[in-house]
Write a protein that binds this DNA or RNA. Structure first.
Lengths: 192, 192
DNA sequence: TCCAGTTTGGACGTCACGTCCAAACTGGAG
DNA sequence: CTCCAGTTTGGACGTGACGTCCAAACTGGA
């Protein structure tokens, strides 16, 4: 697949609202072309179709997640503090692209082979989280847990709470949401 | 929409693997018809199309979730114990229909309007969880929390861990998974 | 026996898709 | 400046799945 020019890549972010409007399948590729002001033929020059565009958006968002999570992981502090920063990073990215986030979550099956997507999410989010969990367990700030499943649980918790906010309010306040998620996954729901 | 006969409803469960095989959009409605041995015309007599079939599968699974969760909520015990039972119920349903679960999660945007789906999930899972959280908070077995967001976080955690198991192993052992999820959401990751 | 509802195969028009092309444009190498 | 490879664009086109329609057969209860 050819390298997508910056000019087009930037405009593609505007495609998310179009898809979101009446659902991904309802949006004809012609609508997208018109909406972002790029001729249909040009889109087909770079993408093999609608799903390929979705895959591109997913890849872009995952890249952003990866970057932000990397930054969070490199923060000073205990494992627990850095884990918190990672969750916050994930919420920031979701909150920064609510339309795209909703589009991707609700159409994830069309953005590529599921196992490949899972692998990409793993390297962007799960892997750093696993590392952080392990480090937190070493420095005594976090419990020893099954890092694989725990990473998935954290991802799911943050993702669905974030999605709920987007659905309800169209936007997302990372700090507000994080506060509530933290109570659950850090302190635990059980009374001491 | 007409009432779908039991004979057809039962066979529709066999449609999930067909959809899953090469993705939902790759499966032609003809393939489904042949696979479950119901003529195409008959399918169109009951459903307006592929997406409508997906919506039916979703509704069926949500009904099962609702039932199992109801049972769990009516268990004897503290709020905390019943919350645990609710999470287990959710995992049981996922584990009992791995193909359908994966199909629905990855194509949720095509199973109907997102707000309506959200409402259905809310009444099947979130609402009982909210109630249980409130009761647990009263009986002292659970912390006081934002029940709305917490319910979403729990749903997300259980769903994504469950999905991960299905992707990795094709099946799901509720008790195993629950054990790890419980450490996170009940005890919390932070060391006391 | 009758009828309303169901079941089925087959034929059909429609529409978006993705392909293809030819012409215009771009920008860097020589 | 000239050339050329790569890019951009509009338009035309064939394809295929969709969903509709129909007419005939079947079902089961009134």
């Amino acid at each position: 697949m050819k390298q997508v020019p910056q000019a087009i890549a930037a405009k593609l972010a505007l495609a998310a609202p179009v898809f979101a409007e009446h659902g991904f399948e309802a949006a004809k590729i012609d609508d997208v072309a018109r909406a972002i002001d790029v001729p249909r033929a040009t889109l087909y020059y770079y993408f093999s179709g609608k799903e390929d565009i979705l895959a591109f958006l997913l890849q872009a968002m995952l890249a952003e997640v990866a970057t932000q999570v990397q930054l969070a992981v490199r923060t000073e502090g205990s494992g627990r503090e850095r884990l918190r920063a990672v969750l916050r990073a994930q919420l920031e990215v979701l909150g920064g692209n609510p339309d795209t986030a909703q589009l991707l979550v609700t159409n994830i099956g069309r953005a590529g082979r599921l196992t490949e997507i899972a692998a990409a999410v793993d390297s962007a989010f799960h892997a750093p989280v696993r590392d952080t969990l392990a480090e937190g367990s070493k420095d005594g700030s976090l419990r020893e847990v099954d890092v694989e499943r725990t990473a998935s649980a954290l991802f799911g918790a943050v993702l669905l709470v974030g999605l709920r906010e987007i659905l309800l309010h169209g936007s997302l306040s990372p700090d507000e949401v994080l506060a509530d998620v933290e109570v659950v996954v850090m302190d635990g729901l059980a009374t001491p």
